[in-house]
């Protein structure tokens, strides 16, 4: 959030369970447009390989969000 306030490219990665928290907090801190990358919850029960596969599926979307012109 502090980085976003300095007008630098930034995004927050969170799981579906924390999407509401992320959006509400971004709004409360005066930055409602902060990009959020939402990953399926939960991680705790997944194997390391499954988490890696999820990361590979998400990485392009995350790069796109982080480099998006606002």
């Amino acid at each position: 959030m502090q980085i976003a306030k300095r007008r630098k490219a930034s995004l927050t990665i969170c799981s579906t369970a924390f999407e509401t928290l992320g959006r509400t907090q971004a709004k409360a801190l005066g930055h409602p447009e902060l990009p959020l990358a939402i990953i399926a919850h939960p991680f705790g029960i997944r194997t390391r390989n499954e988490v890696r596969a999820m990361a590979e599926r998400c990485v392009e979307d995350i790069v796109r969000l982080a480099t998006k012109k606002t």
């Binding site: 369970a17 924390f18 509401t20 928290l21 509400t24 907090q25 409360a28």
Partner: peptide
């Protein structure tokens, strides 16, 4: 603080 269950209180 807006920490309501299921919203910001997780």
């Amino acid at each position: 603080g807006s920490a309501r269950p299921g919203e910001m209180d997780r």
